[in-house]
Design a binder for these strands. Sequence first.
DNA 1: TCACATTTGACAATATATTGTCAAAATAGC
DNA 2: GCTATTTTGACAATATATTGTCAAATGTGA
Lengths: 151, 151
Amino acid sequence: MSKEKWTEAGEAVTALILDIFRLNSRLLLTGDRLVADLGLTSARWQVLGSIAYAEQPQTVAWHARSMGHHRQGIQRIVNELKAEEIIEFKANPQHKRAHLVLLTPKGQDLFDAAIERQIPWVNALSSDVKPADLEATRRVVHQLKTRLEQD
Amino acid sequence: MSKEKWTEAGEAVTALILDIFRLNSRLLLTGDRLVADLGLTSARWQVLGSIAYAEQPQTVAWHARSMGHHRQGIQRIVNELKAEEIIEFKANPQHKRAHLVLLTPKGQDLFDAAIERQIPWVNALSSDVKPADLEATRRVVHQLKTRLEQD
DNA sequence: TCACATTTGACAATATATTGTCAAAATAGC
DNA sequence: GCTATTTTGACAATATATTGTCAAATGTGA
């Protein structure tokens, strides 16, 4: 016998969460395909994006936190990207061991190439989404994300 | 020099995707915590949900497809759940080897217990989301998911 | 009915993610 | 300044996910 009941919003968010799980896995899969022959994966691409869009060069731990991933996982990817000269380390004036990560010119080119593919893909994907719906979606997703990140 | 440009919607969806990645990982993390002491994880819970809500008992491969996961990953989890007598197999009249999966009474109790925790959690999480925004969000997420699943 | 493709679970190999520990370095509180 | 706590990268162990292969079973098309 159930004591608790969903509110209307609770029920809707429950259904939304299940759809988000599936959407997330589809996005990763599609992303993998989109950049596979560039030597990238969704995971690598996401790391490059975090580096490319950071206001300042940052440490591995910072990027991991920022993406909501484990430090060790990002470190592994960053080490690979370093070996392939896609990123490089720069001395950190604030910390002797925690170097700052930045894109090499080759890494920047690679990231640009990925973006060149992402643009027509995402434009097509989003072409018949209503702008008002899209705004609302960004509000909700951002709100949920922020709430969950507070713990 | 970039040849392509984002449409407004394309730019918004790009930002949305990044937020969805983070929201997804937070949801998994929070889900793990919510049911950890029941002996569940987000992954196990999701499998139980797929079994519990299926109209008919289904095969492992069906559930994997339905969740957008690999057959082998779901098989591994199902085998564990079987060993713990949370699910059981039933002979499939249509297929000699591909058995149907269903919850045992113990499994049903476990799933109910998880739901009992999920309800107050999701009610609180969604309490100040505007109903109209929520509807729009479900539309958009569903639309994007459906589009990506067509490939 | 018969060949041929597809689906399925089992199994194995590999890749990736997660968790834990350590010591160096930095930060906070005194 | 000095100690305690926190952050960080390195390393290792484990867990989980992904990919590939196989043979049994089913489905498909002549």
